[in-house]
Amino acid sequence: MTAATHPPLFAHRHLLGIRDLSPADIEFLLDRADEAVAISRRHEKKTSTLRGRTQINLFYEASTRTQSSFELAGKRLGADVMNMSVGSSSVKKGETLIDTAMTLNAMRPDILIIRHQSAGAAALLAQKVGCSVVNAGDGAHEHPTQALLDALTIRRARGPIARLVVAICGDVLHSRVARSNILLLNALGATVRVVAPSTLLPSGIERMGVEVHRSMADGLKGADVVMMLRLQRERMAGAFVPSVREYFRYFGLDAEKLKAAKEDALVMHPGPMNRGVEIASEIADGPQSVIQEQVEMGVAVRMAVMEVLLDPRRNAVGAAP
């Protein structure tokens, strides 16, 4: 194999956001993730793809779901996985993100997974360390693996994403999941709608490549996919919306509101759910819900991402240093 005949299929060293990816990059990752689903469904789940490689999960925000998903993905690929959670680290003693990163970098990991409350934290880290960096969520900026796992879930249930109508509902303002999904779904040719009270929409939303709706009845009309977003507790009590009951009345997904969507529309939620706030239990646990599939696809997508970023052939053909 030579550089001339096999250019790198995925010319990125880090995964910091969906914005950096081409439609071909996205489809490539989804194809690889499809293969990873099969591995996870085998009796023998461990492979040796990343044997001898070191993965560090650096989580500044608590996240049982995403962190365990990355951990399991690494382990299934045969990597050595270390978890750094904020509670037990020197972060509490005032060490800056960069200093922590440099310390970890000196231990020569192959890949760093970072979750941080500040937008841009993953990009900052990527500038300072010598290994690959995966953004597992940075403030209200991006959460690329979530968007990829959502796309994989949709694609496996509905086929090609192009021309599907996807309604993203809820706290778009604070949501990195919404931003990554808007970018990815647009890249693959879907029609993207957002549905939210105006106080939970970011400035300039109408120029973000979406249709903006203020009622669930309009926003969900004929939708193929309904994506609910989590509403943080502290944002419900008067700050952005007056109360939980008012929010649920107008924007909580229940059977009545879901009727506006296609009969077989998929219902998704990135978790963790606030049952009775943004989604009714009967819907979350109902036949249209693919929330459990999303969790399964999460592991597969993260396996694919890490495998592709650490593919030794990339280095062999002189990918970006």
Binding site: R19, D138, A140, E142, R179, P202, S203, G204, I205, R207
Partner: peptide
């Protein structure tokens, strides 16, 4: 500055 660019960066805007 509040606006489209801040929204994409996920940064809180100042109107």
């Amino acid at each position: 500055n509040e606006g489209l660019y801040a929204s994409w960066l996920g940064l809180s805007g100042i109107p």
